[in-house]
Write a protein that binds this DNA or RNA. Structure first.
Lengths: 347, 347
DNA sequence: CTGAAAGCGCTTACAG
DNA sequence: CTGAAAGCGCTTACAG
């Protein structure tokens, strides 16, 4: 059996042209020395026949599958699309295909997903790990996209610095009391972001953090976060650690009749699809996904090249931090702008 | 050269155990007749060595790559994650890997993406086409996920029926004047949804449609949709054709001081991540992505099996419609519920 | 410039 | 129950 592929193969082209397979291969790849005429003739004929090289044959011979793996903790996470798109783009540009694997659920599923990819012969993989997972040496080069706190071979947005951008923005608007809103107090990303915000507070500014997961664990205020109450207590800025929480905050405050940005400001993180669409649109901070994906894929590709020499698994570069960029959409705040002249701080 | 793979292969296991490769292969796959003892011994040794079968070798021999392709118009579309996840899950369950390809941009990029996948040897693919694209015969079985209006080999959520669900819900809440809000008047999906809504209006109900793309093309009202004005004109229900537009509507109305759901109701489509999170949360209609993905992948797998006999490209089943399911989150409306007793209609 | 040959790792009739 | 052999389609030294 061994059901042969439908399309034509090298030897079909070769015999039909009265030349050897080697010559056809060389002509098509432009490697061995083949006369211009022949090259022309062979390529033409191949195109005519709709020849598509067999990846399997090539992979078996060269030992390179031309495929990278992408492991995601949960594709349904709204951050995923942008990263996946960027990875696919970068990989594609480097001549690689991308095999996805969703590690939904626990760490076991993640290991499982990684193994599946290895079995499928990926030459390397990009892993966005589940919270608090450490990736152990896999059978191929691995690049991790996570926080900077992850040790080694990691690319990460500089979440801390992103937090500083937010704090700076809020300070410029004249805010003094900031409520940081996160939804997972164990997330490294969220902790980095919160830490960044706190680290950039100016004199006279004060921040508190509301962890939604804790609130809910403790019974919470039903389905509200009690933000209106917080506003009444004097918080004028709500700095969510992700745009989803920002959206939650925004609508909860609006529902309570609080005007944004006239009464309070709301900021987020990640510049997700809805941020520019809601009213008022969200000030947020964006990661440079293209750059992150580019670095991850490049590290992988380099590692793959090298590993053909010293066989086995290699790690990629040291942790690489990519700056986040502030996207201002709410440009005024409740306390009138001290933006240009920040002398107010001292009052 | 031909840099050999790092790991052990069948012949390594075979020679190290003093048996033939054929026997090892049979023992591992459980196919040929091998004695229980030997099977045990071989499997153990293989596991010890960390043997991972070479996909390339297997694919070359069997002509099956074990990989499906997934072509998406734009991964950044918020609907994507759920579908991709479902496809990956279904494919994985069927023993297939999934290679993704983003056809971002024009139709040319889509053709390009499809070709890339074919070159990588996918055995079939799921295509979510760009608007108004007709997929021409590819070099492998194809399943399309689109609207029911797409001819042949298509799986689709029943957007029309989804629209009817929404209309029924709004009717039950006692709404008479409905503003349908879409963002692309050329989208088949959105037109189906709008058509479904209109088709299920009850006596005395009236609907108008606001197409955001037209509004913007004509200069629009700046960045607002003018929904508050619509509310003043007597519209009490805003039925967006996607949750993103619903979100836009919700926040715009809230910003204008209109209370939801006390003054007006807002509904969406697709049950995207933020729908349950915003205040008030969105009533929406959800597609059964798992079912859709399951059907698409199954059709593909069947088609692949068959095509090994009658070689060449096959289409999958006829258009298959999957019911959408109403998710009620705003259970009261401005005009007090006629829900149970819908006699009000006749007044 | 061109071709004959080996071999990547696997599976599968077939013979013993 | 086990093994020897062929062959999937390709690339790459090597010889001519």
């Amino acid at each position: 059996m061994a059901s042969p592929r439908p399309g034509p193969n090298l030897s079909r082209i070769a015999s039909s042209l009265g030349v050897s397979v080697a010559t056809v291969s060389n002509a098509l790849s432009g490697k061995g020395r083949v006369s211009g005429q022949l090259i022309e003739k062979i390529r033409e004929h191949a195109a005519e026949l709709g020849y598509v090289p067999s990846q399997a044959g090539r992979a078996l011979r060269t030992g390179r599958s031309g495929v990278l793996g992408l492991v995601l903790p949960d594709i349904a996470n709204p951050l995923f699309p942008k990263i996946a798109q960027a990875i696919e783009f970068a990989a594609s540009a480097a001549g690689y295909g991308v095999l996805i694997a969703d590690s939904r659920g626990d760490v076991a599923a993640q290991t499982e997903a990684i193994n599946r990819l290895v079995e499928r012969g990926v030459e390397g993989m990009v892993i966005i790990p589940r919270r608090a997972t450490r990736i152990s040496a896999a059978a191929c080069p691995v690049a991790v996209i996570d926080t900077a706190s992850t040790p080694g071979n990691t690319v990460a947005a500089d979440h801390w610095q992103g937090g500083r951008e937010i704090a700076g923005h809020l300070a410029d608007l004249g805010h003094q009391r900031i409520l940081i809103v996160g939804n997972n107090h164990e997330s490294n990303v969220q902790n980095d972001r919160a830490g960044g915000i706190r680290s950039a507070l100016r004199a006279g500014m004060h921040a508190e953090t509301l962890w939604i997961d804790r609130l809910e664990r403790d019974g919470g205020n039903g389905c509200t976060l009690g933000l209106a109450e917080k506003a009444r207590q004097g918080f004028t800025a709500f700095a969510a650690l992700s745009d989803l929480q920002a959206l939650r905050a925004l609508t909860e405050l609006q529902q309570a009749g609080i005007n944004i940005p006239a009464d309070v400001s709301v900021t987020g993180f990640d510049d997700l699809v809805w941020s520019p669409v809601v009213t008022p649109s969200l000030t947020t901070v964006r990661m440079d996904v293209d750059r992150i994906a580019g670095i991850a894929v490049l590290a992988l590709v380099n590692s793959i090249r090298t590993s053909s020499l010293r066989e086995g698994m290699l790690v990629t570069a040291e942790t690489d931090r990519v700056a986040m960029q502030l996207v201002v959409r709410q440009s005024s705040g409740p306390v009138n702008p001290a933006s240009k002249t920040s002398e107010m701080e001292n009052t």
